[in-house]
Every structure is written in C-alpha cells, then in structure tokens.
Write a protein that binds this DNA or RNA. Structure first.
Lengths: 181, 181
DNA sequence: TGCGTGTCACACAGATCGGTGTGCCGCATC
DNA sequence: GATGCGGCACACCGATCTGTGTGACACGCA
C-alpha cells in the first residue's frame, strides 16, 4: 500500500528524468534517490552500482516504434515531423544514447553497445521502409537519412531551434526522390 | 628558460587534450595542472575559475578554415573528406562544442554561445561556397549540408566507423546536384 | 503476540571536487 | 647583499561523489 509503484520503477522514473535533463555525470545517486522518494540504501539494494543504474536507464530508453498505415516513404519523413514535435515540447535534450557516450567518454563501453543496438534498429527500420518504397540502394540511403536525423538532433541541441527538423526532412525527401525509379 | 612555453599556453594545451579526450566534467583542475606541469595555484592565477578555463578551451578550438583553390562545390565535399581523415587519425571524440553543451547541460550558456558562433561561421562558409557554385537556395542547402556534417560526427562517435563521413559526402553531393541549374 | 521482511534515516568511509591560504625557494634586478 | 616577485609545494576548506554499515520502525503473517 505504501508503494504505489514498485521500487525499481520509481527509481527508473527519477533516473530517467534527471539523467536525461541534467546529464549522467552531473547527477549523483543521492539526488536520484531523493527524487524517487526512497533512501539511498534501497537504491543500492535494487541496483548494485551507478553504472548498473545508468545501463538500465539507457536500456529503458529503447522503445519500439508505433506502427503506421502511411505509405513507406511518408513514414520515413514522418520521423522528422515527430522529432519536430518532440523538440517543441520543451524538454528536449538531445539523444540520450549519444549523450551517454559523450559524457562517459572513456568509460562508455556499455553505453556504446546499447547506443549501437538502438541506432542499428532504427537504421534497419528506415531501410525496410525504403525497400517497400522501392528506391535504389535502400541500405545506403537509410544510413544517410539516419545521418540527417542525427544531425538534426545535434543541431537542435545547440541551436534550440526546431526548424532544423523540417530542413532535415526536406533534405531526406530530396534524397529519397533522387533514389526513385 | 625554465618556461619553454608561456604559462597560459601550457595550461591550454593540457586542458585541450584532457577536456576533449576525457570530457569536461570528468577532468578536474588538479589533473589539468598536473598534465601542464604546473601547480594548481599557478593555474588559478592564470584562469580565475574552471568555467573560465573551459570557455578558453572552447574559444581556442575555433580555427579559421584554410583557403583552397578547388571549385566551390568540391570544397564543400572536401569538408567531409577532411572529417574522414580526422576520424582515421584515432583521437576523434566528436565535436568539442556539441560535447560541451551536452556535458554542461543546464550550465551551458557560455558554451552554447561559443558553439553557436562556430556553427554559424561554418554554415556561412558553406553557404558562400554554394553561392559561388550557383545552386538554388544556397542558404537552406548550406543548413542541410551542415546537418549531414553534424550527423556524421555524432554517428562516428557512437559507431566508431569512419565510413559514415563518406556516406555523408555522397548524400551532400546528391543534394547539391539536385539544386543545380 | 512474536517473528521476518522491507524500508527508513543516519552516519560513515575514502576519494575527489573547485578553490584558497601560506610559506618557501630561485632568480633577476638594483 | 637586499629586495621583490613568479612559481612552487602543501595543507586545507566545505561540498560532493560512490558505496556501505547500522539500528529502528512499520508492516504482513503465523
């Protein structure tokens, strides 16, 4: 009764908000425990170390993309519109996976592995859509569109301007069009 | 005689290496002083705070691009080849400005301002080349190519694969070609 | 009623953080 | 030789870091 949500979930909710918003290195475990409304002791009973907590935070950030009934090429472009919306929401702080690799620097083996999984999943998703769209070289084109996506995220982070998402989408549209027939 | 290089330069050389390679938050002032071969006291006599040291580190990272006699469109594409070379060099750790904004998170006002200056300079440089190349919408195209550049950097950081630079270059070539005539 | 469990608050360890104060030493200049 | 000064070593400050140990309290269950 005292626990509305299970311990691990409450911790993860706090860790997600704090790590993403303020940065992994900038947030101590005390802060996470306080935000979760639990004691540091309970946190360490649930996660053996901060590294494990960070890994769980990143793994939790991997979410499957919702299915769509748009035509495949439009689905690819819609990814950029979703990015545009996400940024306008105000709490955008870049890609948590890239951020983790950046922050952890020389201690980012685990983070990099998780980031690679995520990026590769997304690239494959784009590639499968492009195959259905019948374009030439769908694998390479998927990588290039993923680059535009990544670039839009990084640029939004420093420029604080959502418009780059639309510029990226337009560029992606040009690339797709150039690969048609 | 004891000082082969002036104090500030020795500090900056150490700070540049450490901040870029290991991250700003991950490196303390003691480490910088030790790497520079000076005392922490002397460091604080030269830079009033770590924030000032970080700002100097970032400002020093802004370097003018060398002139080139290639045709303008080729110069734009050459930027990606240079990125490819830089990555192959082995000590690539992403864009120091984006990294600083990522690491400093909520305390990144100064870093973001410097990053914006740098990114805008580079975008303008690309735009002026595109104007000379006579393409349509050179300003927008410059932004889109800058996005590819940013995306290549972020992707190299997590994938550790220099090939993305060439994929980005190819995509840029397609965008430029689509904007010709 | 008594026991076990889960969680709490709290204090602590040892390290590191950014930043400062102090006193000494080598050296150049007068 | 005296003086001043730049740089050094070193100790220290309070705060924070990750991680642990402890003892108490509240609860479910027998």
């Amino acid at each position: 009764m005292t626990e509305r949500a299970p311990m691990a979930e409450r911790i993860m909710a706090a860790a997600d908000r704090l790590f993403y918003q303020k940065g992994i290195r900038a947030v101590g475990v005390d802060t996470v425990a306080a935000e979760a409304g639990i004691s540091k002791r309970s946190l360490y009973d649930t996660f053996p170390s901060k590294d494990a907590l960070v890994a769980a935070y990143l793994r939790q950030r991997i979410q499957p993309l919702p299915p769509s009934d748009l035509p495949p090429a439009a689905q690819v472009l819609a990814l950029f519109d979703q990015l545009h919306v996400r940024f306008a929401h105000g709490d955008f702080r870049g890609c948590p996976f890239v951020n983790a690799v950046t922050e952890l620097a020389e201690d980012c083996e685990t983070a990099r592995a998780i980031a690679l999984d995520y990026k590769e999943d997304r690239r494959r998703h784009i590639a499968s859509l492009l195959v259905r769209a019948g374009v030439r070289d769908p694998e390479v084109l998927a990588s290039q569109i993923a680059l535009l996506f990544e670039g839009a995220i990084a640029s939004m982070l420093v420029r604080q301007d959502a418009e780059v998402a639309l510029q990226a989408r337009d560029a992606a549209a040009v690339l797709i069009r150039a690969a048609e027939t």
